[in-house]
Amino acid sequence: MTAPVLGHVQVDGKQFSANGSRFMFRGVTYGTFANRGDGALFPESTQLRADLQEIAHAGFTVVRTYTTPPPDMVEVAGELGLRILAGIDYRDWRYLFGSSAADIKAVRGEARDAALNFAKSIMGNPVILGISVGNEIPADVIRWIGTKPVSQLLSELCALIHDVDPERLVTYANYPTAEYLHGDDSDFLTFNVFLESRQAFHRYLTKIQHDAAGRPLVLGEIGLDSGGDARGEARQAEVLDWQLEVAMERGVAGCCVFSWTDSWTVGGRPVEDWHFGLTRSDRSPKPALEVATEWNGRNVRDLKSRWPSMSVVICAHNAEATIDECLEHTCSLDYPNLEVLVVDDGSSDLTAEIARRHPRATVLSIPHSGLATARNEGLLATAGEI
C-alpha cells in the first residue's frame, strides 16, 4: 500500500528530495486522451483511478501529463502517493508556423493565462511535483518566431509560476532538434530523447548533462514504438531496459517512459499507428511494463554486482570551522565500500577532535608539513582501489 503524498519535492543538487530524503523520480507519461465531456483530456474517473492504481503498483512515483490534470486525478494521485509533472493547456505551437504576428501574440497571452491560472489553482499542493510550461516547440516554429522571443516567453512563464508559488518547480520539455533553446528560469532540465542506439544514447546523455550544469536532468520521454506485434514488443522491452540502465548510470535525476498505454488521442483524433504504450489499448501489459517495474525498484547500487573500493582523503589544517560539515556529507555517502581518511596536518585547533566524532572516518595526524605532504601521506595510508 502506497503512502499519501506529503511535502513538496525539491531540487537537491543534481537530484530531487522530499521530506528530507532522496526522491526517486520514476515517471511514466499519461495521455492525451479524448475529451471526456468536462473539457479534461483524460479518461472517465473509473478508468483514471484504475490506471493510476496500476501505475503506482508498478513502482512509478511520477505521472507526466501534457495538459492540466483534472481535480479527480490530483486527488487520486495523492491518495496513491503519486506526484504529477503537469503540462499546461494552451494553443499548440505546431500550428503557429506561418502565422501572423497577431496570432503569435494571442498564443503568448493564452500561455500566460494558462500558467497563471493553473499555478493559482494548485498553489501549495505537493501532489503537483512541477509544471512544464511547454513541450517540444518545433524547430521550424522557433525559426519563424525567433529563438529569443520563444526563450523569453518560456522564461516569463516560469517566472509567473514562481511569483504565484515560489516552491513550485518549473521546467520546459525540450528535444534534440531544438537543443539550442534555453530557458534559464527553469528549475530542472527536461529532454525528450528517442535514440535506438545504446552508444548514441550514452553519448547524448553525457552531453545534455553538461548542458544541465548544476540542475537536475529529467528525461521527459524515452521508449520505443512496439509496432503492434510480438516481435516489436520484445524489441521495445529490450531497448527500454538499456535506456533505463544508461540513464541511471549517467546520473539522470528521473525518467518518464513514453507512455502508459497505446490508447491516446491528439487534436481530437485517435492515434492508431503508434504503439509506445507499456500497456495495449485494452490495458493488457506488454513485456516492457515488467522491465520498467524492475527498474523502478533499483538504484545505482544495482548497476554493478561488485563496486571497487574507494578511499577519500581529506587534508585539513586548522579546519575546525568546516571539517564537521565536510565529514557529515562525506560519511553519509551511500557507497558499499567507502574509506574516509582525514589527514590532520599539524592542526592547533579542534580539527582532529571533531573528525574523531565521525565513526566512519579515520584520523591520521602528522606534523605540519603542507598540503602536498598531507596528500602523499594520505595516499600511502589508504587501501581503496580508487
Score class of each variant (00 low, 15 high):
178 A>G: 12
304 K>F: 06
129 L>S: 05
336 P>W: 00
36 R>Q: 14
213 A>W: 10
25 F>G: 03
73 M>G: 12
379 L>F: 14
26 R>A: 08
323 I>T: 05
2 T>F: 14
171 T>V: 04
161 I>M: 11
327 L>E: 01
167 E>N: 12
358 H>C: 06
327 L>P: 00
3 A>T: 14
345 D>V: 02
160 L>I: 15
11 V>T: 07
184 D>I: 00
33 F>V: 06
18 A>F: 10
344 D>T: 07
72 D>H: 11
122 I>E: 02
371 L>N: 10
136 E>V: 05
42 F>V: 11
209 Q>W: 04
89 D>P: 00
294 E>V: 05
384 G>N: 08
300 V>F: 13
172 Y>W: 12
322 T>Q: 13
242 W>K: 10
63 V>W: 04
125 N>M: 06
11 V>N: 09
243 Q>T: 02
377 E>W: 00
141 V>M: 08
385 E>A: 13
190 T>I: 01
81 G>D: 06
386 I>M: 14
69 P>Y: 04
71 P>E: 06
207 K>Q: 14
291 V>F: 05
307 W>D: 08
24 M>H: 15
320 E>W: 04
10 Q>F: 02
232 G>N: 04
258 F>R: 03
12 D>A: 15
86 A>R: 03
260 W>C: 04
378 G>D: 02
16 F>N: 04
164 V>Y: 02
151 S>P: 13
282 D>R: 03
303 L>F: 01
75 E>W: 00
209 Q>N: 14
229 D>L: 03
250 R>A: 14
131 I>S: 02
15 Q>Y: 10
269 R>E: 15
40 A>E: 03
142 I>R: 05
106 A>Y: 11
46 T>V: 12
330 T>V: 15
236 Q>W: 02
338 L>K: 09
154 L>E: 08
309 S>T: 14
185 D>A: 14
37 G>P: 10
259 S>F: 04
351 T>W: 03
345 D>P: 00
250 R>T: 06
306 R>T: 15
315 C>K: 03
158 C>A: 13
141 V>N: 04
120 K>G: 03
9 V>R: 01
110 E>Y: 11
271 V>S: 11
76 V>Y: 10
160 L>V: 12
170 V>E: 02
122 I>F: 06
276 F>K: 06
336 P>K: 10
45 S>A: 15
14 K>T: 11
250 R>L: 07
38 D>S: 10
1 M>I: 08
29 T>M: 04
4 P>Q: 09
220 G>N: 08
142 I>H: 04
